[in-house]
Structure formats: structure tokens, C-alpha cells
Amino acid sequence: MKNKIISKEPIGLRLPVKSPYIITAHHYDLYPKGNNKMEPTYYIDGRDIGQDFDESEPWRMYHGKKIPGFPVHPHRGFETITIVEEGFVDHTDSDGSTGRYGNGDVQWMTAGSGMQHCEMFPLINENSENHLNLFQIWLNLPKKSKMVTPYYKMLWAEDIPIVEEIDENNKKTKIKLIAGNYKDIKAPNPAPDSWAADEENNVTIWLIELEPNAKFSLRPTTSTASRMIYYYSGDTISIEGTELSKNYAAELVSDEEILITNGSEKSNILLLEGEPINEPIAAYGPFVMNTEQEIYVAFNDYEKTQFGGWPWSAGDPVNPKDSGRFSKLKDGSTEYPPKN
């Protein structure tokens, strides 16, 4: 019988990926109560403020000095897809856009020819803890799209389809469709210049939640696609009879149906699939291009132009505590989640 698991390995902050994906990071932080400035009410002794990535601690400041997060930094040549299951992110960028999203929302940003942005994690709750559970996925762009005009859009939680499947034992699986489709149900449209915008590229990003003892089968796709799952919440699952523990990733064959059987606890899985971009990759820091010369040009362009500059008075701006979820675009218009 064919082994449907190609490889498996433990995961940390960064998850193993295959093309068309470049990086996937999982930020799981048990932030404490916040103060009236949306800062942690206490710091862990000895942390390296501004360079805090200690995975042994319950939460991290990352590059934030007062509020956790990632102050202004540039990107070129790829996309970021930021999935916030729990907690909030304040976004600002060099186009003058800003917003707050979280608790199930997804931001899809095409860096393209160059964009600066800032992602801070305001601790809004003063009377309860501010847990953050966030995935950021770097999806590559093909050569023809690496220098497109930067773009971003919100996929509000209320607009993202969640499909429910019931197995023969009446156990439920929920599939949240961030990219791709499940049967005849489609995810929201991705950014227009994305590799995911062409359905033939089979880009699939799902969050899968299984009830205890539920069974769910991944449908086959093409033999050339990559397929990775990340088991990030639960106890154990079985993949075609092979046990996989929490905080493990598995690369799976893509052209066969694969049965996942959950253990005795609720489980959560991130699925990433897609056709590879069969082009050379040159990556350094915040830039992903095709050649080392293009990386050099990217650094030179950023030094000269700052990708349009930074229109904000600080490198780590946050919105007022009572802002709620919103997205203010570069044309001055403001979007809000739909009222269901």
C-alpha cells in the first residue's frame, strides 16, 4: 500500500512549506490583560525588548517595545495572508491605509513592487487576557506579477464560508475556506494578481476543525501540487492509520484521498495546497525575487524611495482602543465587517 505521508516533523514558530509558499509563521501568544495604553500589564523578566522571539515563554513582544508586534518594515515580490483566529492586529501601510482586524478575519496583501507595512498586536482587554492565535503565510508571486501595484483587501470572518461535514458516526468537521473551494462552495476572491487568482493553480488554504473522534477525507488534487498540514491544536490525529501528534507538520501526497481520524479531543489543522511556481527563487530578508540581482535592486530601490515613504508619525502606530474592526483604504473610503 502506498505511503501517503511523505514526511513529518515537529513545528515551532516557523512551519515547513513547499512552493508556492515561502514562509508560514504561527504566532500563538498568551498575552495578559492590557493597560489603558494597550500594553501588557507586566513584562517577563529578562526579555529582549525589540528582539523577543523566545518560544519557551508564554508570549513575545517580537519587535514591539511597548505594544507587541512588528513595526514598519518593507516587502517586495510576494504576498502575505494573515489569518487571525483569536486576538487583534492593527495594520498601517505606506499607501496610507489602516485598520483593525481579528477574531476570525483574514488580511490578503500583495506587496508586489514594494510596500511598507506595520502589524501591531494591541492588548485591548483590560479585564481579561488577550490571547493571540495568528498564522501569517507568505505566498510567492510569479515573475510576471512580482512588480505589480501593491494591494490589500480584508476577508471579514462573516464573509468566509464555513462548511460542515457529518461522518457516518454523526461526528462533525468544519472547514473554513480562506482560499480554494470545497465541493461547490468557493472561498472569497483572493487579491487580483495572486497566484491563487487562477483556479488552475489549485491554491487551497483551509482551517479544519474536527470534533472528538470525527473522520474527514481530503479530496485528491493533482500529482504536481504540494500538500502540507499543520496540526496545531488537540492531542492526536491519525492519517491513514499513522498517528500524528499536536505541533507536528506532515507533507502528504496530493493526488489521492487521505483519511484523517481525530482522537478524543477537538482538533484544529491548517491545510496548505497549491501548484508550485516553477521559477528560480532568490530571497533575502523581506524581499522574494527570482535572481540575486533583483534582490540587490530591491534593496537599492528601498534605500532611494522607501517604497513611497511612511506617512505615519510613528513606526509602530496603533488605532484607538475603541476603534472596533475596520479597514480604511488609500482612497479614503472605510469598510466595516458586514452586520449579519
Rank of each mutant, 00 (worst) to 15 (best):
residue 272 L to P: 02
residue 163 V to E: 00
residue 333 S to H: 06
residue 172 K to A: 07
residue 255 D to W: 03
residue 196 A to H: 02
residue 74 P to Q: 09
residue 161 P to F: 00
residue 239 I to S: 05
residue 296 Y to H: 06
residue 276 P to Q: 09
residue 142 P to H: 03
residue 57 E to S: 09
residue 76 R to Y: 14
residue 102 G to L: 10
residue 208 I to H: 03
residue 71 P to I: 15
residue 224 T to P: 08
residue 215 K to H: 15
residue 253 V to I: 15
residue 176 K to G: 10
residue 266 K to F: 13
residue 3 N to G: 12
residue 277 I to Q: 12
residue 54 D to V: 15
residue 205 I to Q: 02
residue 43 Y to F: 15
residue 329 L to E: 15
residue 84 V to Y: 05
residue 241 G to Y: 02
residue 202 N to R: 09
residue 30 L to Q: 04
residue 303 E to T: 04
residue 257 E to A: 10
residue 91 H to V: 01
residue 91 H to F: 01
residue 123 L to C: 02
residue 271 L to K: 01
residue 59 W to K: 13
residue 142 P to Y: 03
residue 46 G to L: 09
residue 167 D to H: 10
residue 32 P to C: 11
residue 12 G to T: 05
residue 113 S to P: 02
residue 247 N to W: 11
residue 323 S to N: 01
residue 65 K to D: 14
residue 31 Y to M: 04
residue 28 Y to A: 14
residue 120 M to F: 08
residue 325 R to F: 06
residue 25 A to V: 08
residue 165 E to A: 06
residue 138 W to S: 00
residue 31 Y to Q: 02
residue 55 E to A: 14
residue 155 L to W: 03
residue 91 H to Q: 07
residue 262 N to W: 05
residue 140 N to D: 10
residue 53 F to H: 13
residue 73 H to P: 11
residue 19 S to G: 12
residue 85 E to I: 14
residue 178 I to F: 09
residue 81 I to M: 00
residue 304 K to R: 11
residue 126 E to S: 08
residue 320 P to K: 12
residue 130 N to V: 04
residue 1 M to Q: 10
residue 41 T to S: 14
residue 47 R to K: 05
